[in-house]
Write a protein that binds this DNA or RNA. Structure first.
Lengths: 108, 108
DNA sequence: GGATTACTGAAGTTTTCACTTGACTATCGG
DNA sequence: CCGATAGTCAAGTGAAAACTTCAGTAATCC
């Protein structure tokens, strides 16, 4: 099972860590092998793999192994989930703020 | 100091916890006192306060005490920071995907 | 003013997280 | 085939996170 169901909690948790955000920033420039992802980070390869696993489980990254090298790339679908969550929540409270606005306007 | 500087790491961390997302969902319907926020959650008032503090430090929520009751409300500015982060990152990798598309097109 | 309400503060506990070490497996190059 | 390369597995460590309990304090109610 390559990636899991889109769970907004996992996505936020994944993005909560600065190292994982740094990994994403690297991958934005194009797919990379695990060692290449690890190179600029001052932590062990193992730690990087653990981060990649969390990113993959969140649906933000997809990885694929060919031969002995595992290639990691951004999974845009994961970000769509995130975007949708924010859009939904924002419109909800904007509606609420609008109602509040109407209320205040009716007051004077 | 009511709220801190917008730190995307703090925001993601705050949103990573299901209880805190539940609190936000409540506040979307309008401002509430701490006890009212705590009522539907099966944890202690103290725990709720700790969550509220994290939410406030992330800039997603603003609280204000009048008399003996502290009122909590959503802080839309916090969400703007989040929105901007996503938009920025999304456009970055969309540009990358476009370049990739051009590349493939030029190949055959 | 005494009880109640609404929160606050300071511990202490348990779980989860980020990270390491060290041993191990599976390719690839010569 | 042999050695280097690329990644994987299984524990273990230390610190941070999410809770709890319990003892305050400060407003409000009667």
């Amino acid at each position: 099972m390559p990636d899991a169901k889109p769970d907004i909690g996992k996505i936020f948790h994944a993005l909560g860590d600065p190292t994982r955000r740094a990994i994403l920033d690297q991958l934005v420039a194009g797919p990379l092998s695990v060692s290449r992802v690890a190179a600029p980070l001052s932590i062990t390869l193992t730690a990087v793999m653990q981060h990649l696993q969390i990113l993959e489980e969140s649906g933000l990254v997809r990885t694929e192994k060919t031969g002995r090298v595992r290639t990691c790339r951004i999974e845009p679908a994961g970000f769509s989930v995130l975007e949708r969550w924010i859009r939904d929540h924002r419109t909800t409270w904007e509606r609420r703020l609008d109602r509040l606005g109407d209320l205040l306007e009716g007051e004077h």
